[in-house]
Design a protein around this nucleic acid. Structure first.
Lengths: 170, 170
DNA sequence: CTTGGAGTGTCAACAAGGCTGACGTATTGT
DNA sequence: ACAATACGTCAGCCTTGTTGACACTCCAAG
């Protein structure tokens, strides 16, 4: 560590040294890339009365229709009060529908309305466009590596959520 | 788009189709991974009176010692009022030093004090530890792809900043 | 059937960290 | 001399996170 160096795994024939400099470049890449990643939906949301928190809620409700509030809470990693404020406006604006659970009537199952789906489409189109461009530029092998590193970077808890969603969608 | 499919670049012998599903998985991977990415320094900062904004300022001052306020503003992509609030506390707490420019006395050149460097080290150690673990798990080829995709995902402006920093450090 | 606890909603208060607008003060360059 | 630049600061606003407290519904166990 003091010499800014750390041993690493072997890659085929070459030994990889992970210097602090290499790691820092990765850190900065994440910082700058995340800014780009959120920029396009942010621009769209700015014109409306919504923010990034609304986007996240809409995204995951669309991804897992009928999900409960508690479930969404766990995925988003915020307090119910924070989520509720966002959810309330989305429901009031007719983008999200909250249905009382059939089996357990305490639970609320969340669904996007047609208007909600339309907004989701608009937002994720914008985000996917950038993603698609980046993927094409980088090429398939790079994309595979990209996903592998991101997965390794998640907390165990989040990795579980991520995998579950991934399998749901596939 | 309606069929959830979009053509892409050719990869050696195989044709890559970027389905909306694949893109969405990438989007979710970014979301979950970024949470992990910031989690460790956030925990440390929570115990002090600082937040993520302080971390960012400290990081880039350390990265480019003597940088001007305007320069930092451009890299961080915030207003001077936002940055100033953070900078003021860091200077008051003796972590950052602001020196009047030699050539142009309007400019303030920012440096970390010893205490500032110590905090920077603590924060980036935590972040690098996770990064190193992820890099090792994923392997060298994945790391290369990871970086390639992230670079392609940045805004042109940010890519320029990123590259400049990268060359500075190397 | 009562009661504890889980799931949910909501109110209040607060903090971090973005933003805009306006203004002041050096300093520099034309 | 004057305009532009670099910086600092005050005031006010927004979003989105936090705690704490409380109420309601409903399920399940005693």
């Amino acid at each position: 560590m003091a010499d800014g160096r750390s041993t690493s795994s072997v890659s085929g024939e070459s030994l990889l040294f992970l210097t602090d400099e290499q790691l820092r470049q990765g850190i900065e890449a994440m910082f700058f890339a995340y800014r780009g990643f959120t920029a396009d939906p942010d621009r769209i949301l700015d014109d409306m009365a919504y923010g990034r928190a609304h986007h996240r809620a809409i995204h995951f409700i669309n991804r897992a229709p009928g999900t409960t509030v508690n479930n969404l809470l766990a995925i988003l990693g915020v307090t119910k009060q924070s989520l509720n404020r966002v959810l309330r406006t989305l429901i009031a604006d007719g983008l999200v529908e909250s249905r009382v659970g059939r089996n357990d009537k305490r639970e609320r199952h969340l669904h996007l309305t047609d208007a909600g789906k339309a907004l989701e489409q608009t937002l994720s189109d914008a985000q996917r466009t950038r993603m698609r461009a980046a993927y094409r530029t980088a090429g398939p092998e790079a994309v595979s590596g990209f996903r592998t590193v991101l997965e390794a970077m998640m907390d165990q808890e989040m990795r579980t959520s991520y995998i579950r969603l991934k399998e749901t969608g596939a």
